[in-house]
Amino acid sequence: MSLVFDLLLAAALLWSGGRCLSVDRLDRAIVLFIAFGLLMALAWARLAAPDIGLAEAAIGAGLTGALLLDAYGVVKRRKA
């Protein structure tokens, strides 16, 4: 069962990473990036590395996501 879990997690990671790079709209890419960071934190947790998982959850999924959303708002306001 843990093998199924790991394979599903790896597939979702690859899919969300590739989709995040290939999608054409900026806001979709940001949401996919947040999802990617979260899945990455889960992957670190599965690899029994809670410290890296903590950093990934805090920086990758949380702060970078919020900063990217903020930057996206600024870019859109400037364009309008």
């Binding site: 940001i30 959850a57 999924a61 702060l63 919020a66 900063l67 959303l69 708002g73």
Partner: peptide
């Protein structure tokens, strides 16, 4: 931090 992302979206990015 998921909550922080949500608030950043509502306050800054969504227009």
């Amino acid at each position: 931090l998921a909550a922080i992302g949500g608030v950043a979206f509502a306050k800054r990015a969504w227009q």
